[in-house]
Simulated assay, not measured.
Amino acid sequence: MERFLAISPKSQMWLFHTALALNILGMVLTDMWLPMVVGTIVTTYLSIDVMVRVRYVLPMKKMMRDLEHENASLRRKMTDVEETSVY
């Protein structure tokens, strides 16, 4: 989810979890059930989405980037070895 580019994913996680807590508190304290239930469903989705992104997707992307860099350096070494072995 790249819609919220102004703040970091960890800040988004805190923001959405705080919004979820406030929605649940609003459901308990007020009689506006329908808007609060809709808000709670939306913030639950956003909270889970950002938590999955922070805990799993972003570290996986970093690991993939590191593996691609290592793969490229190994390919360069292989071509260097092949070039020197030809002579």
Rank of each mutant, 00 (worst) to 15 (best):
S85P: 01
L34S: 08
M51H: 08
V86P: 01
L29D: 04
R65D: 10
R65I: 06
R75I: 08
V37D: 05
T40C: 07
V52K: 06
L58G: 05
I41R: 10
S73D: 14
A19K: 05
R53C: 02
M63R: 13
L5T: 14
L74H: 05
T40H: 02
I41D: 07
M63L: 15
V42H: 02
L15P: 00
T79R: 11
E83Q: 08
K62N: 12
E82V: 08
L22H: 02
T40P: 00
S85M: 15
N23Y: 03
A72Q: 12
K61N: 07
V54G: 01
G26D: 02
V81C: 03
M36T: 07
S11K: 14
Y87M: 10
M36D: 02
R3W: 15
F4C: 03
G26R: 01
L34W: 13
D49M: 07
R55A: 12
V52P: 01
L29T: 09
M51A: 14
Q12M: 09
M78C: 06
M36E: 06
E68G: 04
A19E: 04
T84D: 11
P59K: 03
G39S: 15
G39H: 03
M64Q: 12
L46F: 07
T79M: 14
Y45D: 04
M36L: 15
K61S: 05
E70R: 06
F4Q: 03
M32H: 15
T30M: 05
V50G: 00
S8N: 08
S11F: 10
A72C: 05
I24H: 00
H17A: 15
P35H: 06
K61E: 09
I41W: 12
P9I: 02
D80N: 14
E70K: 08
W33Y: 12
K62I: 15
S47P: 00
M1D: 14
I24L: 14
L22N: 00
V28W: 11
Y56E: 06
D66R: 06
A21C: 08
L67Y: 09
L58H: 11
R55F: 15
D31L: 13
V52R: 11
T18C: 10
L22A: 04
I48C: 07
P9V: 02
F16A: 00
L46Q: 01
E2K: 10
